[in-house]
């Protein structure tokens, strides 16, 4: 590609104890077609590989000293994002595919559980699912999912937290 990679250094955010996920997703939104993302982080962001994989990016990571990591996400193919894989055979009448990523937000302050869950949903191709573990029944999240047209199923788990599985609908850009 002729475009230089988009550089994003989230180490300052991480060192301040912040949460860079939404910043990263914002950068991904801002990428030009075919452009790569070069990310600098204070650890190897394995969960992000899944999220970016689902959006059609390949990841290559290397340690750059001081425990810091450089990860380059390269678009694998332009059509990858728009063609969901055929969903797995229905299990006991369930036509939803298995969740391809799980967000554990049980120990996060509001509204962080909602932000992370939505960021993960927005990273999914249409029809795929993700799951999230949340500290309580997410009333504000339901409202926003409804607004954005995503479907969900959820219930309290015996341990006391709430588990929600969300299936991504067609992306609706901007406000609804």
């Amino acid at each position: 590609m002729t475009l230089p990679p988009y550089d994003l250094d989230v180490r300052p955010i991480l060192r301040e104890g912040g949460e860079p996920f939404s910043v990263i997703m914002g950068a991904v939104e801002a990428l030009a077609p075919g452009q790569s993302l070069r990310l600098l982080a204070t650890f190897k962001p394995i969960p992000l590989f899944h999220v970016m994989g689902a959006r059609g990016f390949d990841a290559s990571a290397r340690e750059i000293g001081n425990g810091d990591w450089e990860v380059i996400f390269t678009p694998a193919g332009l059509e990858a994002e728009e063609t969901p894989k055929p969903s797995e055979p229905a299990k006991s009448g369930d036509d939803w595919p298995e969740p391809e990523l799980e967000v554990d937000a049980r120990e996060l302050d509001p509204p962080e559980p909602m932000t992370r869950t939505l960021a993960a949903v927005e990273s999914l191709p249409v029809g795929r699912t993700m799951s999230a573990l949340l500290p309580r029944e997410p009333l504000f999240l339901f409202e926003e999912l409804k607004r954005r047209g995503h479907e969900w199923r959820g219930a309290f788990e015996p341990a006391g937290h709430y588990r929600i599985v969300i299936r991504a609908a067609e992306a609706q850009k901007g406000t609804s």
């Binding site: 939404s22 997703m25 509204p111 932000t115 949903v121 927005e122 504000f140 406000t175």
Partner: peptide
């Protein structure tokens, strides 16, 4: 501030970078 944040950034949450509450 919490309600203000939701009101302001609810629609773009997860799509764009948002500030913290």
């Amino acid at each position: 501030p919490f309600l203000t944040w939701l009101e302001c950034f609810g629609a773009v949450m997860g799509r764009k970078p948002t500030p913290r509450v």
